[in-house]
Simulated scan of single mutants.
Amino acid sequence: MEIRKKGKWLEIVVPKGWTERTIEDVLKNQLQIPKTMLHSLRMDKTVKLNHQITPWQSLLKSGDFIQLELFVEEEFGVTPEYKEISILYEDDHVLIVNKQAGIDTHPTKEGQLGTLANAVAFHYQTQGLQTKVRHVHRLDRDTTGAILFAKDRLSSSILDRMLERRDIKRTYLALVHGLMKQKKGKIDEPIGRDRHHPTRRRVSPTGQVATTHFNVLKTFPSKKLSLVELNLSTGRTHQIRVHMSHIGYPLVGDELYGGQAITKRQALHAHSLQLFHPITNDLIEVQAPLIDISEPYFEFMNLKKVPN
């Protein structure tokens, strides 16, 4: 399928497989545009066929052009602020950034600066792109690694739905205290708020369902540490930190959940991201290298030194 951006329009060249299908069928079932957005596109008359506004029941033929007014100018939603960002992947629809430690994903109060979202807004501005900064998921302030942004409203809607269905695979690395005896496994424990602490979470029978899969990559007997690969079937706040602490292996540096302060932050890194592109359906796979492994103990998380 041939897709291209032309100004504010997304232009799709109709492939042979769409012949004799209606515009509406393709929008609903092939592009999987959410109902609310379909209604908006219909009311605003922002779908064209071969540069003409055409009834949505019109049949398509190979080589036709479907055009969607997708790249409209929007407020960033945050104040653009210059800060270097490490880009892992970018096209007209998707941006994946390798987040460094010590910054929030997005502002938590009006006018806040210094977040990754502020830096992404500045990046958009330098590209001449005027669009809302849309993070698809977030990472804790001191967690590093791959984080996904949608650059248009359609991609944002599709990616949000993919995240809900767990169709976006996020793989983390964590350095934990203790030598883990079980090499692979699953932690199935609900997580809720800790009523005795404003930010902490805890395993609670009344909490939300939470599932974490783990795989021990390497142990370091002299340091009594384990390097663990983790995948989430759910996305609860502090999920990895809570679950690993609950089974007796808190993250190095994670004082909130019982880790020792031998590093300045918790040793958690979003190592890789895998998803199908929201528009083209092409497979996207990225790996986020650790930006700074100079701090003691973080060198143990450098996969280049860890055998498979």
Rank of each mutant, 00 (worst) to 15 (best):
Q274W: 01
L227R: 00
F65Y: 14
G102I: 13
H123C: 07
Q57P: 01
S222D: 15
P190H: 06
K218D: 00
Y172W: 11
L10N: 02
L27Q: 06
H93R: 05
D152M: 00
R4Q: 13
R195A: 07
I279R: 06
T144L: 06
L275V: 02
R4D: 07
P221M: 11
L116Y: 09
R236V: 11
R161L: 12
L251V: 01
E2Y: 13
Q100M: 12
T79F: 08
T211P: 01
A101H: 01
K264D: 11
M1E: 06
T46R: 14
V14L: 05
F276V: 03
T263E: 09
S233A: 13
V252L: 14
K61T: 15
L227C: 11
D25M: 04
E299P: 00
V78L: 03
T211W: 08
P107H: 08
F65V: 14
I262E: 10
V286Q: 08
K45A: 13
T79N: 10
Q208N: 15
K45P: 00
L290I: 15
E24V: 02
L268W: 02
W9I: 09
R42D: 10
N302Y: 11
D292M: 08
R161M: 13
L275W: 04
Y89L: 07
D188H: 11
L163I: 04
Q260V: 08
N281D: 15
F149P: 09
R236F: 02
K184G: 02
I85Q: 00
A119N: 10
K16T: 10
H135T: 08
K223Q: 14
D142W: 01
G178L: 10
N98V: 11
P55F: 06
L275E: 05
R166E: 00
L159T: 07
E20A: 13
D188L: 09
K109C: 02
V176T: 15
L68Y: 02
V306S: 11
P107V: 08
R265V: 08
L95M: 12
I33Y: 03
F149A: 02
Q208G: 00
T46D: 14
M37I: 13
I12F: 01
Q287T: 14
I291L: 15
T143N: 05
V216K: 04
S245K: 04
L148E: 07
G128V: 12
Q125A: 13
L290V: 03
Y82V: 01
G114H: 10
P278W: 04
K28I: 09
S204A: 14
L268N: 01
R193F: 03
A119I: 12
T219C: 10
S233C: 06
R161A: 14
H269K: 12
D140I: 05
D91V: 03
K223V: 06
R21S: 10
P55R: 01
L70A: 04
N118D: 11
L217K: 12
R200P: 02
R241F: 10
P296H: 10
S222G: 08
K305Y: 13
